[in-house]
Nucleic acid binder design. Structure first.
Length: 484
DNA sequence: TTTTGAGTTGTTCGA
DNA sequence: GTCGAACAACTCAAA
């Protein structure tokens, strides 16, 4: 008689390293059937965006490759998840299904239903945590409510037991006697038909597993200077692991422990303070998941109800100019073009462009969230929602609305020589440092020498920041009056 | 229950 | 040039 198999349903845990669902399947002693199911419709309004799909394509390719290295392979299916799983269960005589949890509202609903259905059929179904250091329900205030302020959440996390040590990747997987049919990766059509994603392919090494060398390099070289360098878009001062964390190619526990070790090695490694600062950022990711889980409506609605009726503007042209990096503010345009080209934007610049959309243009933050969702290779519902609500001032522990980023000052402070602007806005590259963040103030002769014709070779400012700031504060004041 | 201290990332203004 | 205050109260979390 055919031996029943154990299905490992891969989702956002596209790795063999530190994968508890995979480990459980291996431990069962049964043949292991690794599966990925492409079913974007089941994720509601938040099926992966275009950049994420590109990333996913290569992540799946790498996963298949690493599975083949241990004597297995990745089975791909497309269609309604439950139907696909049921077919796979029949084809492989599987009696158990293992997966790692996700926390997006639509996905939780889908997965709960699947678990119920499969359990009803008598299967052993078990889910695990591979995505988070502290799952949302394990961190609670003294009165058992979810946290809404970061710092107490952070302290609560640190007082929790340390996240588990990562599990090693299995050396060998037991294959089923006969593999079930699999779709071809290309047939999932995750890559765009028009190749707008060449910039993404150039900016990232998509054909090789990069995640562990990224960690090593960052801990060895990047961590010590992280507190200062992390704010500088003109410097390679961040770990750049966000897309790997999102796809699950990188285990957060692996990352945590690699950096945590540095906090205990003051003599040889980077200063403990720098490592702590980085861990704090990882806890921000946990906080984002905490909020998404406990306040699922925040994906589209402000957490702070006082913002529900804020009179955002409608301005299709302004939105388009922002998306395309044609606002006339060099640091904003540099960021938006870096995003469009590489699928990634430096964190500091995300705040600047976010503030510009929401406060200078007074456009609704969900518009920004949607654009980021489609264009970021690290697009992550929890992080994206938190980030946009934070910058708009309507989220948990958010920047107050009156705290408005000045795109010129931010540029001068964090891109002092304008190198970041010059890289992404080449039409300004010949402009001297003094005017690189504010070309409209440059004398006509300087502009001419730099080959710039404002309004033709580079756009005029969409708005005057000082006026826009005053307008935003005024609108904020009004919305508070009408709210009462 | 009430009180109290505190809260990611800024900017501007006036002394 | 530097510094502190104002910007706006509000809500959270813990004592």
């Amino acid at each position: 008689m055919k031996q029943p198999a154990a299905i490992v349903w891969f989702r956002q845990d596209l790795r063999l390293d530190d994968n508890p669902a995979l480990e459980a399947a291996v431990k069962s002693g049964k043949p292991v059937v690794p599966v990925f199911i492409w079913d974007p419709d089941s994720e509601g309004d938040w099926s992966p965006g275009a950049a994420s799909r590109s990333w996913l394509h290569f992540a799946l390719k790498k996963l298949d490759k690493s599975l083949r290295a241990v004597g297995s392979r990745l089975v791909l299916h497309e269609g309604p998840t439950l139907e696909c799983l049921e077919k796979l269960i029949d084809d492989t005589s599987a009696d158990s299904v293992f997966w790692n949890r996700r926390y997006e509202p639509a996905v939780i609903a889908r997965d709960t239903k699947i678990k119920t259905e499969l359990s009803k059929r008598g299967l052993h179904v078990e889910s695990f945590n591979a995505m988070l250091l502290f799952e949302p329900w394990t961190v609670k205030t003294k009165t058992a409510t979810p946290y809404k302020v970061f710092t107490p959440f952070y302290r609560a996390c640190l007082s929790q037991p340390e996240p588990d040590d990562p599990i090693s990747a299995p050396q060998k997987l037991k294959s089923p006697g006969k593999w079930p049919t699999s779709a071809k990766l290309e047939s999932l059509k995750l890559l765009p038909r028009i190749h707008w994603d060449t910039g993404i392919r150039e900016a990232w090494r998509l054909d090789e597993p990069e995640e562990s060398s990224l960690i090593d390099r960052f801990v060895q070289q990047g961590l010590a200077g992280y507190p200062e360098a992390r704010d500088r878009p003109d410097v390679d001062g961040t770990s750049r692991v966000s897309p790997y964390l999102h796809s699950g190619e990188l285990s957060p526990r692996r990352l945590w422990h690699a950096v945590r070790a540095a906090t205990r090695r003051p003599k040889t490694g980077p200063p403990p303070k720098a490592a702590e600062g980085y861990l704090r950022e990882l806890i921000w990711r946990e906080f984002a998941y905490h909020l998404l889980f406990h306040f699922p409506k925040t994906v589209s609605e402000p957490l702070n109800a006082g913002f529900a009726k804020f009179a955002w503007r409608k301005d299709a042209g302004g939105l388009k100019a922002w998306q395309k990096g044609q606002t006339g503010y060099p640091i904003v345009d540099a960021g938006m073009r870096q995003l469009w080209t590489t699928g990634w934007m430096h964190n500091r610049v995300r705040m600047i462009v976010g503030s510009f959309l929401v406060k200078d243009l007074l456009l609704p933050w969900p518009e920004g969230a949607k654009w980021f969702w489609d264009t970021l290779v690290d697009a992550d519902l929890a992080n994206n929602t938190l980030g946009w609500q934070w910058v708009a001032g309507c989220g948990a522990d958010a920047a107050p609305f009156f705290r408005i980023f000045n795109p010129i000052r931010q540029g001068e402070k964090f891109d002092p020589e304008g190198n970041y602007v010059r890289e992404w806005v080449p039409e300004l590259s010949k402009l001297p440092d003094r005017w690189i963040q504010k070309p409209w103030e440059a004398p006509e002769s300087i502009l001419k020498d730099a080959g710039i014709d404002l309004g033709r070779t580079y756009p005029q400012r969409l708005v005057d920041h000082d006026e826009a700031r005053a307008r935003a504060l005024e609108e904020f004041k009004k919305s508070r009056e009408t709210a009462e």
